[in-house]
Simulated assay, not measured.
Amino acid sequence: MKEEKLKHSKRITLGAAAIAASAALVLSGCSSSGSSSTPDASSSGGALTPVKLQLQWFTQAQFSGYYAALDQGYFKDEGLDVTIVEGGTDIVPQTQLADGAVDYAVAWVPKALASREQGAGITDVAQVFQKSGTLQVSMADKNIKTAADLKGKVVGNWGYGNEFEMFAGITKAGLDPATDVQLVQQNFDESGLLDGSIDAAQAETYNEYAQILETVNPATGKLYQPSDLNVIDWNTEGTAMLQDAIWANTDKLKNDPAYQDTTVKFLTAALKGWIYARDNPDKASAIVVAAGSQLGASHQLWMTNEINKLIWPSPDGIGVVNADSWAQTVDVAMNAKNLEGSTVITKEPDADAYDNTYVNKALDALKSEGVDVTGSSYQPITVTLTEGGK
C-alpha cells in the first residue's frame, strides 16, 4: 500500500523546495525547561542517550505530547536527548525505523502492518490513539447519517491506504462500493465538499473537519457550524482502525538490553507528555505553535482537544494495546477490499506485531510518581475556531 501524507491541510501546502527543506528539519532537545541538544549529565550523572523519533507529518498538535515531553524536560529526566524528526510527503515513518535511520516512529497501525508484511521489523510498543479520527462529512441537507445513506452518493476519499475504513463500512452496510456509490479521489482538503462536487468527504476530526468549521458559509455569512453538517464516524459503524502508535525496532527489542531499557524510558517520558497535553491543552497547543507549526493557534488548540478525545479515557492505561481494537483493525485490514480488490494485509500479523511489555513498565513508573495514566475523569474543553484557524 502506497504511503502518503496522513494529515492533509490546505494551509500547509508548500512549494517543492520548501517541502524538501521542511522535511529535513528536526527539533531537538532545546526546551523551555533548559534541556539541550548536546548530551550532558543526566540526573544519574551519566551522559544523555541520543534518541530520534520520526513523526509521520510536519509539526502540528497531532504530536503535541512529544513536543510537550521535550519542552517540559521529561525526556531529559529519563536520561534521553531526543530529536523529533518531522515527516514529509516522501517520508514513510515505519521505513525510516526499519532502515535504522531513527530509533522510534509514529505511524498508523494498518500502514505499519502493511510494511511489516513486506519485511519491516517493527513492533507497536505504545498504542497512543485508542480510537480512529476518520469521518465522512456531509452537509446536513444531504441527510447522510450512516454508511447505508451513502447509496447513490458521490463519496470522496484520499486513497493511498486511507480508504479502507470507509470501504469496510460501506460493505458492512450491505452496499457494493463498486456499484452502489460513486467513489472519487478527493483533494487533500475539503474543497470538493464545500463546492458541492462531493456529497460526503473524508476528514479527520482534528484537522479537515475543523477546516470546514473555519470557513464562511455563503448562505449565512458566518462560519459553518456543526449543525450545518452530518458525520459518519467509523468507530460507531464498527469498522474503525487504530491510528497513531509508537513503533520500535523488533530485533533490538529482542536482542539489545540497552535498547529495551531506552524504550521504557522513552515511553515513560512520551506518555507523560501526552498526560501533560491532556491536563494543559492550551499550553500544549502553544508549545506546538512555538515549535514552528504552519497552522494557526485556534486550529492547533482544536487539534489538541480532538486528539485528547481519541486518547482519553484510557481504562487500561495510555498506550496499552487493546486486544479487541487490535483484532478489529486486523480484521478490516485483512478483509476490506478497495476498488482494485486489494486489502491492506493478506495474513494475520505474527506475535511480534505488538508488545505491551514496555508500555506497562512505563505506566508502572508513572503510577509510582502518582501520575494519572487512565484519565478516567477526563473532560474535553470547548474551543472557538476562527476563520482560517488563526
Score class of each variant (00 low, 15 high):
77 D>A: 11
79 G>C: 08
79 G>H: 13
81 D>G: 09
81 D>C: 14
82 V>N: 11
83 T>Y: 11
86 E>I: 05
86 E>D: 12
88 G>A: 14
90 D>P: 01
93 P>M: 15
93 P>L: 07
94 Q>L: 14
95 T>D: 06
96 Q>F: 11
96 Q>A: 15
98 A>C: 09
98 A>S: 11
101 A>P: 09
101 A>E: 15
102 V>E: 11
103 D>V: 08
103 D>E: 08
104 Y>D: 00
105 A>L: 02
106 V>P: 00
106 V>Q: 04
107 A>K: 00
109 V>L: 07
111 K>P: 00
111 K>Y: 14
111 K>Q: 11
112 A>M: 01
112 A>N: 05
113 L>H: 05
113 L>C: 10
114 A>Q: 06
117 E>A: 07
117 E>C: 02
120 A>L: 10
121 G>M: 14
122 I>N: 09
123 T>G: 00
125 V>A: 13
126 A>K: 09
129 F>I: 03
130 Q>L: 05
132 S>M: 06
132 S>G: 03
132 S>L: 07
134 T>P: 00
134 T>F: 10
134 T>Q: 08
134 T>D: 09
137 V>E: 01
138 S>C: 08
140 A>M: 06
143 N>M: 05
144 I>S: 10
148 A>W: 10
148 A>M: 05
148 A>P: 04
150 L>N: 04
151 K>Q: 10
151 K>H: 07
151 K>A: 04
152 G>L: 04
153 K>H: 07
156 G>K: 12
157 N>Y: 08
160 Y>H: 09
162 N>Y: 12
165 E>K: 04
168 A>V: 13
168 A>E: 07
169 G>P: 10
169 G>N: 05
172 K>V: 03
173 A>I: 03
173 A>R: 04
174 G>R: 09
177 P>I: 03
179 T>S: 15
180 D>P: 02
180 D>V: 03
180 D>S: 12
185 Q>S: 07
186 Q>H: 04
187 N>H: 11
189 D>M: 02
190 E>R: 01
190 E>Q: 12
190 E>W: 01
191 S>A: 06
191 S>Q: 14
194 L>V: 00
195 D>G: 00
196 G>Y: 00
197 S>Y: 00
199 D>W: 01
200 A>G: 13
200 A>F: 13
200 A>N: 13
201 A>Y: 04
202 Q>S: 15
203 A>T: 11
204 E>G: 13
204 E>P: 02
205 T>Y: 11
